[in-house]
């Protein structure tokens, strides 16, 4: 069984988590062009690599960040999100 570490609840089975996709920055919908908006909502970085992703521990509804190597499916680090100042 694959284990993921929730920053609040510790190591849990992967089946307790749901995946929220890579962390991306939303352009300002009021000012950005239609192309930039379409790029944001549809396009993704689908190539393998180490990615920062949203994950949620569903029983406790804890959203957090995981750094994961998507080619090897290895979780490198998990931590709570903090807004960069």
């Amino acid at each position: 069984m694959k284990i993921m570490t929730c920053p609040v609840n510790g190591p849990r089975a992967i089946s307790e988590f749901s995946y929220g996709g890579e962390i991306r920055t939303m352009p300002d919908p009021a000012t950005c062009s239609d192309d930039a908006w379409a790029d944001y909502i549809f396009n993704r970085n689908g190539s393998p690599g180490v990615k920062c992703e949203w994950w949620c521990h569903t029983p406790s509804n804890t959203w957090f960040v995981a750094e994961r190597d998507t080619a090897r499916d290895v979780i490198l680090r998990t931590y709570l999100y903090t807004v960069a100042s």
């Binding site: 694959k2 995946y19 393998p48 998507t70 090897r72 499916d73």
Partner: peptide
């Protein structure tokens, strides 16, 4: 979730 390999799982 996204994975770029052909690994399989017991689940």
């Amino acid at each position: 979730y996204e994975v770029q390999s052909t690994r399989s799982t017991l689940d």
